[in-house]
């Protein structure tokens, strides 16, 4: 599967994730989901509600954030196609914690932020049997 995102949106994610460093940050990806191709049209940053002392390695949103943004995406004629978050001083690889909390048919963009600088972005998708994530091709347009 191919994930397409503009250079401008990628930079916005990098800027947000650097601003939340050394804590984790994240938000939703809005866009279009077609067969074998997801196009990210917009990103919406969402506040990390995990306990502050755990935010250096954990990120969470509230269910109310999901409701509000799913309705907003529907109103815009877009879909919630995925979510993004950062891994401070850690590779852009999904963790076991990520897998346990993941949904299928959803793009997971992870940004590695090393020493305060966003330096790697990768896209992943949970397999339908929940066994592992597949790496997706990420194209910056």
């Amino acid at each position: 599967m191919l994930v397409k995102i503009s250079g401008e949106l990628r930079q916005r994610i990098f800027d947000q994730m650097e601003a939340t460093y050394p804590n984790e940050g994240g938000g939703f990806l809005l866009g279009e989901n077609e067969e074998n191709e997801v196009t990210v049209r917009d990103i919406i940053q969402v506040r990390n509600v995990f306990a502050v002392e755990e935010q250096h390695h954990r990120y969470a949103m509230t269910p109310q954030d999901w409701m509000r943004l799913e309705d907003q995406a529907d109103d815009l004629g877009l879909s919630l196609v995925g979510y993004y978050h950062s891994h401070p001083d850690s590779p852009a690889l999904p963790s076991e914690y990520d897998r346990e909390h993941a949904l299928p048919n959803f793009v997971y963009i992870i940004t590695s932020v090393a020493m305060g600088r966003a330096e790697d972005m990768r896209a992943w998708r949970l397999l339908a049997d929940r066994s592992r994530f597949d790496a997706l091709q990420l194209r910056i347009d």
């Binding site: 390695h57 954990r58 269910p63 999901w66 409701m67 979510y83 850690s90 909390h101």
Partner: peptide, 16 residues
């Protein structure tokens, strides 16, 4: 309504 809780987090810290 079914609402997923979105959560994530890193695994091992990178060696610097």
């Amino acid at each position: 309504r079914i609402i997923p809780s979105i959560a994530g987090g890193r695994g091992q810290r990178m060696e610097n």
